[in-house]
Simulated assay, not measured.
Amino acid sequence: MSGKKKWRLAGWLVGLGLLAAGTAQAQTVLPDEQVSEWMACLSKGEEALVYPEQYRATKSGGFVRVKLSFEHADRRPTVEVLSRALPEGMLDLVRSYLKQYRLPCLPAGKTAVAVQEFSFSPYGPQDVSWSAARGVSDLKSEKARSCLRTPPDRVRPSWGFDLASRVKQKNYGNLLLRLRFETADGPPQVKVVYDSAPANFRQSVLDYVGKYRMPCLAAGDEPITAEQQFHIDNTGKGRVTVLKDLDLLQFLGAIKDLDKQTANFDLNTMACPFQLQWVAGMPIEKNRVGEVGERNLNRIELLAWLSGLSLNVPAETMEQLLGQSMLISVPCGEVKLGE
């Protein structure tokens, strides 16, 4: 198979270790929420994309991944081919089909970028299949990091000192907050995404983040949304279970219900080998998955798939791992599951 690896995975055990830690917190700037809103109004026209009859006799198939750039609400997108393995005639059909696309809710002066994949196969249940046009967000991470102002002191939970109150408290807890900054001098809007923390810890954190400011936001700027997770360890042992860096094969072997997953990824089209940073969020919310080094739009679907996988660990262990990150080393080859 020209040196390509094809993986069909059984169960592996996740590599976990121990690391000294106390109360921890992590903050992540979220993608621009408007990108998803814009893509939700995508109009695809009425012309269907069908398998071309001239290729049926030769049983020809193929795959193409494209980048779509929308600059006007009432005009078709600019199409850039990111990766392809199909005859020119099939590519012409895809290009013709994409000419119908419009993004009617795109504001004037804005640009939206998306990635979409198309597959042609005379052997599958569908002759032609394609993924959703997945919007590519422009993260405002650098601006937020340099701009965000936090209180000079640390979070100081008001613990109960009597034995009874200490016994009732959980060993581990997490408070996950979504912060939305709309003005330069005002506090963020705070939404509690997940809460398994003691009440006295929770209020101390809410008071603390209420003092955050984003002074570089000018009038008319789009809001900046971030998530921050606060983790509490009430064991007194000063040690928590942490994630280790893994290669992709080991990582997938540690996933819950892997045998129920369906996936088909050609890593050779993604500038392999490469590394990803994976931040545990499931089942509370989707995992955060980012690229180490230069961004490559050919990896969009792989990252989206990895964001929805859950580790095969007990709920109490997941409370310790929530928000922790690991490096996943991705080699060349193919990943095929559920076939």
Score class of each variant (00 low, 15 high):
residue 2 S to T: 14
residue 7 W to C: 11
residue 7 W to I: 15
residue 13 L to S: 15
residue 17 G to C: 01
residue 21 A to H: 00
residue 22 G to W: 05
residue 27 Q to R: 15
residue 28 T to M: 10
residue 29 V to T: 14
residue 31 P to W: 02
residue 31 P to R: 03
residue 34 Q to K: 13
residue 34 Q to S: 13
residue 37 E to Y: 07
residue 37 E to F: 09
residue 40 A to W: 06
residue 43 S to G: 08
residue 46 E to D: 15
residue 47 E to L: 14
residue 49 L to M: 08
residue 49 L to C: 09
residue 49 L to P: 04
residue 50 V to N: 11
residue 53 E to P: 00
residue 55 Y to F: 05
residue 59 K to D: 03
residue 65 R to W: 07
residue 67 K to W: 05
residue 68 L to A: 08
residue 70 F to N: 06
residue 71 E to P: 00
residue 75 R to I: 00
residue 78 T to K: 13
residue 78 T to G: 08
residue 78 T to H: 10
residue 82 L to S: 04
residue 83 S to C: 07
residue 84 R to V: 10
residue 85 A to Q: 10
residue 87 P to W: 04
residue 88 E to N: 06
residue 90 M to P: 06
residue 96 S to E: 15
residue 96 S to N: 14
residue 97 Y to N: 09
residue 106 L to C: 09
residue 106 L to H: 10
residue 111 T to Y: 02
residue 116 Q to D: 07
residue 117 E to S: 15
residue 117 E to R: 13
residue 118 F to M: 06
residue 121 S to A: 11
residue 122 P to R: 08
residue 123 Y to T: 12
residue 127 D to H: 11
residue 129 S to L: 05
residue 131 S to W: 04
residue 139 L to I: 03
residue 140 K to W: 04
residue 141 S to D: 11
residue 142 E to Q: 11
residue 145 R to M: 12
residue 153 D to P: 00
residue 155 V to N: 10
residue 156 R to A: 14
residue 160 G to L: 11
residue 163 L to C: 04
residue 164 A to R: 12
residue 164 A to E: 13
residue 164 A to Q: 12
residue 166 R to N: 04
residue 166 R to T: 08
residue 170 K to A: 11
residue 171 N to K: 07
residue 171 N to A: 08
residue 172 Y to G: 01
residue 173 G to H: 03
residue 177 L to H: 08
residue 178 R to Y: 05
residue 180 R to E: 10
residue 180 R to Q: 10
residue 182 E to K: 09
residue 184 A to H: 03
residue 190 V to R: 02
residue 191 K to D: 14
residue 191 K to Q: 14
residue 196 S to T: 15
residue 196 S to R: 05
residue 198 P to Q: 08
residue 202 R to F: 04
residue 202 R to N: 05
residue 210 G to M: 04
residue 211 K to C: 06
residue 211 K to S: 08
residue 212 Y to L: 03
residue 212 Y to H: 12
residue 213 R to K: 02
residue 214 M to K: 00
residue 214 M to W: 00
residue 216 C to V: 01
residue 217 L to F: 00
residue 220 G to A: 01
residue 228 Q to P: 02
residue 229 Q to K: 12
residue 230 F to D: 01
residue 234 N to K: 03
residue 234 N to T: 03
residue 239 R to T: 10
residue 242 V to R: 02
residue 243 L to H: 00
residue 243 L to F: 00
residue 245 D to C: 05
residue 247 D to R: 09
residue 248 L to H: 08
residue 251 F to C: 01
residue 252 L to D: 03
residue 254 A to W: 02
residue 255 I to Q: 12
residue 257 D to W: 03
residue 257 D to F: 05
residue 261 Q to T: 09
residue 262 T to A: 13
residue 269 T to R: 13
residue 272 C to S: 14
residue 291 E to T: 15
residue 294 E to Y: 12
residue 295 R to E: 14
residue 302 L to F: 10
residue 305 W to T: 02
residue 307 S to E: 15
residue 308 G to C: 11
residue 309 L to Q: 12
residue 315 A to D: 13
residue 318 M to T: 02
residue 318 M to H: 05
residue 321 L to A: 01
residue 323 G to D: 06
residue 326 M to Y: 07
residue 330 V to D: 04
residue 331 P to Q: 09
residue 331 P to K: 11
residue 331 P to T: 09
residue 331 P to I: 09
residue 338 G to R: 05
